[in-house]
Design a protein around this nucleic acid. Structure first.
Lengths: 179, 179
DNA sequence: CCTCAAGACTTCAATTCTAAAGTTCGATGC
DNA sequence: GCATCGAACTTTAGAATTGAAGTCTTGAGG
């Protein structure tokens, strides 16, 4: 039986320490747990929205359009920036979503270089259904934490996040330019 | 100036509450922070390892080979399982990495259906360099947390992770089958 | 032995992304 | 007014991934 098993998180950290001496196990624990958690979550989201006939990436677009607030429109460039995609990828994605009836794509009549992407009623309905599934999943995910622990976890994560998002360019650190 | 800004995390959560009434802000805070953090981190890792002439996905393969322990070999199928890829994608990835001299690919002589992927000295050297950069980045990332807070964060994340990884199929929940 | 099913990878076609070049429109300077 | 620069998007070619079909090897029955 040369079957190798997917190592548990603890085993993985132990293996790292074995292969790489100067490793802070506490830091590694946080980072590894973050990575694993995110991958599992994204698989879970993908499965759920697949039931609605959309993909994770289409759901992302719908989310950002709704988050933009009324009148629920954004340009391809702005969407690309928020989603972390190239404009070219955005063009293709909007093509597909418009063909599927999730969004409309129109030229801005007041400035014909710009394009306006707007969510359709169908897109909105799928977004809502996806949100229902997502929140229910997320609720279940945090089930084992008390309200106080959830608050604490959120606060700690936000402090780490701030370090990345507001990285001072002058601080000389390696975090420079993570935008 | 029709310039829309990337919303801050707080703005984003407020927008969600505006558009979707039954949302637990505490849960949303945790989930949104997790998502943002992971995207920033993966961009950061990508930039760092790019300096070594490898991509994030190649680094992932090197990591798993080293984690496997001596003699630092795994089959394509096992690698694919651990990385969450299809076997087909793994074949291509190994092609490229072998062409770049990061790994070797050999047929297992004791069972000629199997293939053995082994890290090369060059691959090992790049892995080490990448680990140095990564740990330095991670240390900086958690700089604002005290040791106690780091431990707490790690513990909370692991409790959430356990919920996903050891999801009891009988519990009837939506977490079923997240493997 | 021979056959045939199962396992481990590979190949192929189609999807989705990126980088770079191209297009179109608007604004600026003369 | 006209030329030109820049902005916003699209097109194109190439890279990486997936799902499905194909190949090769092993091992179990007959």
């Amino acid at each position: 039986m040369s079957d190798t098993q997917e190592p548990s998180l603890d085993e993985q950290i132990a293996a790292y320490q074995r292969e790489f001496r100067d490793l802070d196990p506490q830091v590694e624990q946080v980072v590894s747990a973050l990575g694993r958690l995110n991958r599992r979550m994204s698989v879970a989201y993908g499965r759920q929205v697949a039931e609605l006939g959309i993909s994770n990436s289409e759901w992302e677009v719908l989310k950002h359009l709704v988050l933009a607030g009324a009148p629920y429109r954004l340009g391809p460039g702005e969407l690309a920036k928020r989603l972390g995609l190239t404009p070219a990828a955005m063009t293709h994605r909007i093509d597909r979503m418009a063909a599927d009836g999730l969004v409309t794509r129109d030229r801005d009549e007041s400035n014909r270089v710009r394009v306006i992407v707007e969510i359709t009623d169908e897109g909105r309905a799928k977004w809502l259904e996806a949100m229902r599934m997502a929140t229910s999943f997320e609720e279940e995910l945090l089930q084992d934490l008390s309200p106080a622990e959830r608050g604490l976890l959120g606060e700690l994560l936000i402090r780490v996040l701030r370090r990345v998002e507001h990285a001072q360019p002058d601080a000389g650190g390696r975090l420079k330019g993570l935008d």
